[in-house]
Every structure is written in structure tokens, then in C-alpha cells.
Amino acid sequence: MAQFRPAITGHGLDRDDHTRADPANLAAMRARPDARLLSMDGLMPHMDGDALVWTALDAVPDDAELVFLGLKEGIPLFAPVAEKGDTRPAYEQRGNRALLMQLAPRELAIYAGARSLVDWHARHRFCANCGKPTTLSKGGWQRDCAKLDTGNGAGTGTGGCGAPHFPRTDPVAIMLIEHDGDLLLGRGANFPERSYSALAGFIEPGECIEEAVAREVLEEVGVIVGGVTYVASQPWPFPSQLMIGCHGYATGRQLTLDETEIEDARWFTRAEIAEALSGSETSSFRAPPSEAIARTLLEWWMERGV
């Protein structure tokens, strides 16, 4: 599977967890003359061709909220927290994604982690438990609600509850479903014309990956699935998901679509998938783009053979 590394992986950073937990060491990292800040306009990075743009930290105010991304070849990297996050669904961000795909693979992976973190901070400035303001801590890998100030002991202070909050990653199962050598692919209402992709859905609390795959396929297309195996995973920073790629076998081919989730679903032959992956304009469907793990899964399946 090594030759099928999904896009948006391979950042190569030393996350340096020990520095995150040491305020004095973190401050020293921030003060280093070689420390670099990711240049961003809100959540979008400034780019120089296929590379990210980095600047010095000497003009950054001491109270600015910065996330410590880690070390790249020993150099500390930081990213600024945006004023506001992006709550748009992923399909509305296709224009941004197309621009970002110009980045070199490692640069894209570094940006993806930074975007997920700064977007989370921008949208979690208040405690979900008590509603009071939170502050960035552990180099941006945590936010803390200030502890309650009980004042004279009456328990009526103006502080918060002291709850810690951690960056969120939502797990998503994305799956190729096979039957008699054909693959089941579907399309949502917001897909580009002729585009089909692997079925996918969020893994729910109290559910393992295999159960999520079986449930989502049954709900979306009415097909019973067994023999689920893991293939590969990919972070997806729109806003912050972990795509868990799987393969499973269907017990039958009859489809019953949930039209609130799926506009269409079809079984495709190996020849049809090969033609779509080749980019042919005469193919029966348009394959997922290179940045999507669904593309990686299709390439893996083709290489895997019958």
C-alpha cells in the first residue's frame, strides 16, 4: 500500500509534544530568530508557486494567538489563529481546494494540519460547558476555560469552569463495496456532473469502523455488507475529518436508494473504472480527483486485481 499514499499526508514534522507542554520552552521557541509563521489570509495560505509562504515572528504581538505546528528540520513553525472559522459544507469549498492542490505534497500536508487547528480555535473561543471565554494553551493543541474565581468563598466569581477542550477530528468511513468483480459507487446531489465516488458516512458514537461501513451502506443503498477490511486513511481539513478507507463485500446487487443522501448509485465494471481513472472523456463516469482518498481506493482496487 506504500505506493498508494493518499494526498494530504506525509507532513514530515516533528510535532514536539514536550515543547507544547512546557510554557518556558514554548516561549523560547517562539523567540528564536529562525522561527517561522505561516502567512495566511484568514484560513487560506499565501502561496509561492507550489510552496507555502513563511515569515519571521518579530512583528507578531506577544499576545497573538499562535499554534505551534512543530519542527521542520529543527526550525519551529507556527500558524496564526484566524478571526473566524469556516462553517460552509465541504462541497462549497471546492474552489479553495482546487487552488490548494497546486501545493507540493508535503506543503499541502503541513497546511492541512494548520488549517484544521486554526479553524477549530476560531470556532471554539467559548466553553461548551459554561459559555465563558477560553484561552489557547499547550501551543494551540488545547483550549482552557479559566477556573472559577470564588472571590470571598461565596462561589459567585466571574471566571469559568476550568474545563479543557481539545481539537476535534471527526472519523468518516469511506468504502468500496464489491460484488462479483464490480464496484458500487454513488453520487450526491452536489457532485459535479457525471462524478461518482465511494460511499461514505460519519462513524457514530459507540460504533466500530466495520459497523459504520455496514450501516452506512445499508442506509444509503439498501445493500447488506460483510467482510469489511481497512485499506488506508487520510486527514481531510474541510473542516477536520479523518477519512478511513475500507473495502467490503456485498451479499447482493439490488439497490434501494435513500434519496435524501444519494442521487444515484450504480455498479461499475473493472473496465469502466479503468477508463474513468485514465481520464477518458468517453468514460461512463468521472473518477474522483487526485486529492480525494476515494481516488486512492480505486487505484488500490485496480492494482489489487481480481
Rank of each mutant, 00 (worst) to 15 (best):
L99A: 11
M101K: 03
Q102V: 00
L103W: 00
P105K: 01
E107T: 02
L108H: 12
L108D: 08
A109W: 05
Y111A: 00
Y111H: 03
G113C: 01
A114R: 00
A114Q: 00
R115L: 06
R115D: 03
S116Q: 07
S116K: 03
L117P: 07
L117H: 09
D119F: 04
D119R: 08
W120S: 05
W120R: 06
H124N: 15
H124K: 02
R125T: 13
C127H: 09
C127I: 07
A128R: 15
A128I: 07
C130D: 12
G131Y: 09
K132Y: 02
T134D: 00
L136A: 06
S137N: 09
S137W: 11
S137Q: 13
K138H: 14
K138R: 14
G139T: 08
G140Y: 07
G140P: 06
Q142H: 08
D144Y: 02
L148F: 15
D149I: 13
N152D: 15
N152C: 08
N152G: 09
A154S: 15
G157F: 12
G157P: 08
G157M: 13
G159P: 11
G160W: 01
C161E: 09
C161T: 11
A163Y: 06
P164W: 09
P164G: 10
H165C: 02
H165M: 10
P167L: 08
P167D: 05
P167V: 08
R168V: 13
V172L: 11
A173R: 04
M175Y: 00
M175L: 08
M175N: 14
L176M: 14
I177H: 01
I177R: 01
E178W: 08
H179S: 14
D180H: 14
G181N: 12
D182C: 13
D182S: 14
D182E: 15
D182A: 15
L183D: 01
L185E: 05
L185Q: 09
G186T: 02
R187P: 06
R187I: 04
R187A: 13
G188S: 09
A189P: 04
A189G: 07
P192A: 07
E193R: 14
R194Y: 09
A198K: 01
L199H: 06
I203Y: 02
I203Q: 15
I203R: 13
P205F: 11
G206F: 03
I209T: 11
E211P: 04
A212E: 08
V213M: 04
A214D: 03
A214K: 15
R215T: 07
R215N: 06
E216F: 06
E216P: 00
E216R: 13
E216S: 10
E216Y: 06
L218Q: 13
E219H: 08
V221D: 05
G222N: 03
G222D: 02
V225K: 10
G227M: 04
G227A: 10
G227N: 15
V228Q: 02
V228S: 03
T229Y: 03
T229W: 01
Y230C: 01
A232Q: 12
A232W: 03
S233Y: 13
S233P: 05
P235E: 02
W236Y: 15
W236H: 11
P237K: 00
P237F: 05
P237D: 00
F238I: 07
P239W: 02
P239Q: 09
S240P: 06
